[in-house]
């Protein structure tokens, strides 16, 4: 549903999600004279170089000073600007969390934080630069919207939606090229998840770069006779309670998948929805409370348990737990 044809072709087009961000800020810059970009000495890496050339007066080179960058963005927002704060996620929101908490979220400053280089697929730079905690640290903040788009097209839509939304937004995206499997027509809305593939035995709820592997996992499982729903959940906050509860009701078993720590990310957010609405077995695919390391993206995903095979086995485990009668006390 809503996806490219020949979804599982080996030749599927690839692009970095950060490219979608760069395209979006260009479009926004053309359309709205209040849109500004701040960069923490990472203009090329965050794909804001074009913006800086086209709109030099609305571009602020903040230098390697992320705390000041976040605060300046708040000041700009209070004067009616729509600032996009661009850096690596390990630095922003990593190094300026208190500024984001007080100057932006508590103050309801209309600031957009764009965090690039999230996940293990940041690769060779190693653990220091692989943001795996950014969802946890942003989704706990009142007034914050947290978006984790799944490909470059959705990143563009998320960025444009962020500009339209009045209030603080955090968007996470990544460095490496990943499959472009949605289309310009695929719906995107803050607060909404989208069922990409129907199924009855279990549901995989994924975000960011794990959505495509989730689709592949569902395809693999179908060959073994399992019918597995796949949900793209780019809006970590506000989260789409209705769609998640429907998955629990219809399929009785949930797997979440994300390039983030297993604590505090999408898995945690979905678990919060399930426990307070409709508890069913849930397996969380993510980085298992550890730091990454240098390596090729593919090698890292394999080593740290974020491949199609890992999702497949998590789905089987969730289905098994469902069959065992989750929540029913067994006789000893």
């Amino acid at each position: 549903m809503h996806l490219v044809e020949s979804l599982f072709s080996k030749d599927i087009k690839k692009a970095a999600t950060r490219d979608g961000y760069g395209e979006a800020v260009m479009e926004l810059g053309e359309a709205d004279p209040n849109v500004m970009v701040l960069s923490g000495d990472l203009t090329e890496s965050t794909r804001t170089l074009k913006f800086s050339k086209k709109f030099p007066e609305r571009y602020v080179e903040a230098g390697v000073a992320e705390q000041n960058m976040a605060g300046m963005a708040a000041g700009l927002a209070f004067e009616g600007k729509i600032p996009f704060v661009s850096s690596f996620a390990v630095f922003s929101p990593g190094r300026n969390w208190d500024q984001i908490r007080v100057s932006i979220c508590y103050s309801k400053a209309n600031v957009k934080i764009a965090g690039s280089h999230t996940g293990l697929i940041t690769g060779g730079d190693g653990a220091t630069h692989q943001a795996l905690e950014d969802i946890a640290m942003t989704r706990c903040l009142p007034n914050m919207v947290v978006l984790a788009p799944c490909d470059s097209i959705e990143t563009k839509k998320a960025t444009i939606a962020a500009a339209k939304h009045q209030g603080p937004v955090y968007i996470r995206f990544a460095r490496d090229k990943t499959p472009v499997f949605t289309t310009p027509e695929t719906p995107f809305e803050i607060g909404k998840a989208l069922v990409l593939r129907n199924g009855e035995d279990a549901s995989i709820i994924a975000c960011g770069t794990m959505v495509y592997p989730a689709l592949q996992a569902s395809e693999e499982l179908s060959k073994e006779g399992f019918s597995v729903r796949v949900v793209n959940n780019p809006s970590i906050k506000p989260i789409d309670v209705d769609t998640i509860v429907a998955c629990a009701r219809d399929t009785g078993a949930i797997v979440t998948a994300e390039e983030h720590q297993i604590y505090g990310g999408l898995g945690g957010a979905v678990a919060e929805v399930l426990t307070t609405n409709r508890p069913v077995p849930q397996e969380i695919v993510g980085v298992m409370d550890t730091f990454g390391e240098s390596g090729e993206p593919k090698e890292l995903l394999q080593k740290y348990g974020l491949t199609v095979e890992h999702i497949v086995s998590a789905v089987k485990k969730a289905i098994e737990r469902k069959a065992e009668g989750f929540g029913v006390r067994k006789a000893v």
Binding site: A70, A74, G75, F78, D98, S103, Y106, S107
Partner: peptide, 29 residues
């Protein structure tokens, strides 16, 4: 807290945050 009382321009407390906001307002102005 800026939103609690009209006339307050900023939320302040954690030290060091105000000047950055002032700078942002200067750039906008």
């Amino acid at each position: 807290h800026n939103l609690s009382l009209p006339g307050l321009e900023n939320t302040g407390g954690p030290l060091g945050q105000g000047l950055s906001q002032a700078v942002g307002r200067c750039i906008a102005g």
